[in-house]
Design a protein around this nucleic acid. Structure first.
Lengths: 221, 221, 221, 221
DNA sequence: CATGAATGAGCATTCATTCAT
DNA sequence: AATGAATGAATGCTCATTCAT
């Protein structure tokens, strides 16, 4: 049924009260099962070389079942992005960092991003290539991830720049550069950079130092 | 037939001597014609949605002709990467910068990368998504572009760090971060970031400042 | 389970006697509910484009329930034909007309057919296309509708021809022609003829006049 | 290439002069080959149960080749209708009959229709069921066949009615009835009526007599 | 008896590749 | 060396049917 696909709570006439939530759980579970399989297959073969049969087999279900929960193969990508954005809403952690001093803030942000990338590496690896090619995914990603993050950073930097706690830089471009750094590190890692693979956890500290202090020789050091 | 693809001088039955170079030129011209068309179509539709018919039409030739110059559709990507690496060998410009002082060096590098990206935007856009998915392309790209650049940067930073002209950072990771920044800026631009699209030429200066001075408030400023 | 479909009184283990007729009524009601839905959907989308899900939704029941009352989707068509033949048995009205004079008889027959078509337009529209394609349906329809009607007409015309009340025509072919006229008018209407749609009720009179008097100019007129 | 599908004569720059008409012939031949196969398979199994693989095998070509000449399976039906309408344009024969006296005209028309049906029985059998179900085909058929024929008949009857050579009937409905008769006879034949199958050639005479003289007993007879 | 999720055979369509001309 | 028609394997998606609850 199409009921699967919508998450609407039906306020209709039916007398079955507590059944709905259970069903909803089952539906959510199946969707996750399918998405998990999709991530695995996409990450391994890429979106196009992955077949729905692959995904079904990986998920341990029949091919048709996928279409009980998603409208199309492409919708799996969207489903993955939505799951990602749910995780992403942990931005709360970020907001906490807003009060810290700039260097700590940068490290916190870097930590947060690196961890996020680490945890969702396969998903990102599955999504990113298609995103670069499909305008709708691109838009969705940009609105859902890139822009919000950009806004947070811009506001922060703007404020600290004004108060003299940060150097007076071209805020929009500097923010893009920092964002790009995160994105680029992800890409480099996907490309197989062994250093990054081995020392991913050390990245935030280095990035923090680099972005805050720069490469210029410091007086005190 | 397959003689086209190899650049070996054929020592075969034909007695004609000076024809070879001309033929080679013709072959190179056709290959370029095809690759140009491929870039256009790939950039617009992505590798998979692009059909060989699309490419042939764009190139103004017959579909079969493509296969006289390339073994497969996938080989077009490799051809594109090889053309790119020929351009990339302009690294000479980079070597010139090696003697400059760190800040100028960084700006020079950034300028160089940004210009390279700018000029080859369509090619990169065509190649990148597939690279993230196909191990062989990945490897090729990494060996051909990422690693050499990393090495240059590493050597430079290592040297300047030792001489005290640069802060003592974790060289490998810092270099990855900087490289990632370039790569990430490319990706952000592909994703449609309007600020980057509008002000791409301003990027090197900002990146140079950011990477060299950092965001910390400077004394003199 | 399959007991539904047969009307046999089950001599099975249950001891309840008078439940059977009630159950039979319930079964008949459900079957009708389903068939009504089937007519609606078939008429709108045609047999093949109609899905069992469509039918179930229209009937307000679950998809599986259909299969408690019918063996297959195709059986719905047969069910529809059987319901139609029950209606058709109103031929009694026709038999009444047998005594009338030829012209009145023809008008009566035409009225009867037109009314029947009018009432069962959707059903016919649902059945006819499949009938033209499936031999078994074809046979069933022919035996159940076409042939009986042909026989009635043939007998009547034969008799009147013999008694001189009708012109001496090639009875079998003439009867087919008249039958064909009814069938063809139905088809034309299904094809969307607006004149027929608007003036369906006027058809019998015209058909009666046409078939009895022909298009030749009459003396008295 | 899509060039197959359009019949446009290209007035373009290419220097190949006499190649085009040859190619056009080849294309037409292939299209006919495919349509012939389609008729066979559709007539046997009906449109939906017929697979493109069936058609390809019957035509002795590969499945993909069909799609070099037709956009979709459904387009085969349209192709069939267009071929039919080309045959239909033999209406010239009909126009000749316009001058004859009414009875002869009717017989001529009937002859013409019956012959047309006879010759294109399989095609009609293939097309008709789908037509009853698909609005676009319906429309196309109505505009291309039913309406023109209706107009011819209406004009003729109108004129003869006015001049007193025909009885004053309800022209539009009478014409529909006659048209319906032809259509209905086709349907009855498809439904397997043996009398019609055996004596199809006798139909025009009987129809002519029936429609012109009617079933009323004639004076002179 | 009703339900509706799961199933998987079946099919139209695409497209990289080949090869006769 | 170019052509482009033919190919047919490959694949996403549909939907009638089943069956455990």
């Amino acid at each position: 049924m199409d009921a699967y696909r919508s998450s609407h709570t039906r306020g209709d006439s039916s007398d079955e009260g507590p059944i709905d939530p259970i069903r909803r759980q089952l539906i959510a579970a199946r969707r996750n099962q399918i998405l998990r399989a999709a991530v695995t297959v996409f990450a391994e073969k890429g979106f196009h070389r992955a077949t729905t049969k692959d995904i079904a087999q990986t998920a341990g279900i029949a091919e048709g079942t996928i279409y009980n929960y998603f409208d199309s193969k492409g919708d799996l990508l969207i489903g993955l992005m939505m799951r990602l954005s749910r995780v992403e809403s942990l931005d709360v952690e970020l907001t906490d960092a807003l009060d810290r001093d700039p260097r700590e803030f940068l490290v916190a942000v870097a930590c947060h991003r690196m961890a996020l990338i680490e945890q969702n590496h396969d998903v990102l690896r599955a999504i990113l290539p298609e995103m670069l090619v499909k305008p709708d995914l691109r838009e969705r990603f940009y609105q859902q991830f890139a822009r919000p993050m950009a806004l947070v950073l811009e506001r922060y930097v703007q404020a600290r720049t004004a108060s003299g706690e940060m150097a007076p830089v071209d805020v929009p471009l500097a923010v893009r550069a920092v964002q790009g750094m995160f994105l680029g590190l992800l890409v480099l890692r996907i490309l197989g950079d062994e250093v990054l693979q081995a020392r991913w956890d050390d990245v935030p500290k280095v990035v923090g130092a680099l972005v805050f202090d720069g490469l210029s020789p410091q007086e005190g050091e």
